[in-house]
Computed example of a mutant assay.
Amino acid sequence: MPDRYRRAAIVAATGVLPARARTGLRRRWLAHHYSELTKRADVVTAVHPKCGGTWLRAMIFRVYQQHYGLETRRVVKSDEFARLDSRLPRFVFSNGHYSYESAVAETLDTLAVSDQPRALMLMARHPGDIAVSWYHQFTRRITARKRELIAAEMAAPIDPRSITRAAFIANEEIGLPALIRYHNQWAARMREHPHGLIVRYEDLHTAPAETLARVMAHLGEHVDDTLIDEAVDFAGADNLRRLESERYFKNSGLRQKKSGDPDTVKVRRARVGSFRDDLEPAEADWVDDMIRARLDPVFGYDTSLDGS
């Protein structure tokens, strides 16, 4: 049974239960499922919502689709490609942080070196940019069941209907402070893993072909530059928006949630440093101060948005 069907079965089986029982069972059963996925994965990629995970997955999808001649329009998230061709790796793309997905990080921390996935990646992005986009995602796009599971583990759950952007970004459990902790924790895992790789969202902007080629080499695939360039074009923001509106992808998560509402699309502005356009100057300065004081300097975000 494909991994996505197992997740759907758990959600369906618990759907009729009262909220407390429903969230408890979903958290436990889905955590077990993600733990098992992690144990058998060849590649684990940690990607927080709004870090460019869709962009990276679309590029990887296109390279494998074209290189191996796969007849699929389902972007890889776990076993989709391995089920079509046994030569291809099993993936886990997960935030590894919220609710049941924390089982990914917890499982990695318990595995012996010999049992670790052969490759580990972290998709990083400037936390200020994530914070603004994550606010729109959490309050307007995320599914009710995911929001319910996240809220169930918060000491002080937030109301997505009324929370302001400023309050969301400052929130210790889900805003900028949490995003900084998230990056620091995964950076530490990258250092400890023999084949850990940090991929920055900003590098995909400034050098998309070179960055994708580095990712594919990390996955053990050395493909022609022409194929890399085609995958970059395919996964460009404008083309992804077009494909999203045309419902090209089989993944339900890659479809616009509400027609006519630009803040409910999966691919929003895809810009670097856009948080400064959204926030008041004092709020943006606070973001910069927090990053300089707390974020691991390995990311280069304490100096400039492009790492220069």
Rank of each mutant, 00 (worst) to 15 (best):
A170G: 02
A207R: 12
P194S: 03
E173Q: 10
H222M: 14
A151D: 12
I180H: 09
Q185W: 14
E153N: 12
R165Q: 14
A167R: 10
L179F: 01
I198T: 14
G196Q: 10
E192M: 13
P160V: 08
Q185S: 11
H222V: 15
P208S: 08
D224C: 10
V223F: 07
E221T: 08
G220S: 11
T164N: 04
H183F: 11
R161N: 13
I150H: 07
Y201P: 07
E192S: 12
I174R: 03
G175R: 00
T206F: 15
Y182G: 04
E202L: 11
R189M: 09
L219M: 09
H205N: 06
E202P: 05
E172Y: 00
A207E: 14
T206P: 05
P177Q: 03
D159A: 07
F168L: 07
T206R: 14
A207S: 14
A188H: 12
A167I: 07
P160A: 02
M154L: 12
G220Y: 08
G175W: 00
T211Y: 06
E210K: 14
E153A: 12
E192Q: 13
E173W: 11
G196Y: 07
I180L: 08
V215R: 05
E173C: 06
D203H: 11
D225T: 09
H195I: 04
E153Y: 05
Y201I: 05
A166F: 09
L212Q: 08
A187E: 08
A207F: 11
M216T: 15
H218V: 09
H222I: 15
E172M: 00
H183E: 06
T206K: 14
Q185E: 15
D224R: 14
A156L: 14
I169P: 00
L179I: 06
I163G: 00
E192F: 02
E173M: 03
L219K: 09
P177L: 02
E210P: 02
